[in-house]
Amino acid sequence: MSAIRVRGLRKAYGGVAAVDGVDLDIAVGEVFALLGPNGAGKSTTVEILEGHRKRDAGEVEVLGGDPGRASAAWRGRIGIVLQSATDAAELTVREAVRHFAGYYPDPRDPDEVIELVGLTGKAGARAGRLSGGQRRRLDVALGIIGRPELVFLDEPTTGFDPEARRQFWSLIRLLAGEGTTILLTTHYLDEAEALADRVAVIAGGRIVAEGSPKTLGGRATAEATVRWVGADGPQVRRTADPQNLIVELSRHEELAELTVARPTLEDVYLDLIGERA
């Protein structure tokens, strides 16, 4: 069953296409990451799916409804985590989360959500006094308070320190474990790799590749790079069969500092968006 189904989505600003024929299928319960450089059409696509923006053309179905004609009941089933909001600055974390719980038919317990995002110690602090990372965690709390079936996360961990990112990742895994569908956009490829069941790369308003983080862009079957330091200094060899190469080489010499590397998700990604040096 599809949580999100998109066919031929188009959106132009002043005659310039921002989204130029995007197709997407995201299954219920899936964690899906949309990767792409700034200006690739990521945010426009997500904002259309959230019901924040009108599309020019294409079919869009989100949780069985058209986000362009969103009803209150439909909005109650999705959760949007905003990217750069500074609202509710004068309210405490607890006041804000409790208030937003009142909008939904079956909200989560506010104190549990605050605990879940790791803000229990800051529950009485004004939102305007939180650090950047804490503020983003409040945004996550407000996005999931309504017990959504589908959560949109637009670059959620920008500005997080490494520990906060790990905490955030476990929160996403927890939501996914409960069966929540998650659409995430991110700049961090390790984040996509750690969280997503599937990823798609968007560039120039089109999806240029789609697959699991392990297989994206033929990553699993791509040639491996074997590096070692031999008698004549550092050596590099590319091969589809590194095991045989190493067996063969080791008959003749000592292979110091031997490494075997497949392309990283970052290598594949940079190839796909055409920015590899």
């Binding site: 924040h52 209150a72 909005r75 999705i78 909001a85 609202d87």
Partner: peptide, 12 residues
């Protein structure tokens, strides 16, 4: 500051 955008994404 995002108040309206946030509210627009809720059933309020």
């Amino acid at each position: 500051d995002g108040t309206l955008k946030r509210l627009r994404g809720t059933p309020m």
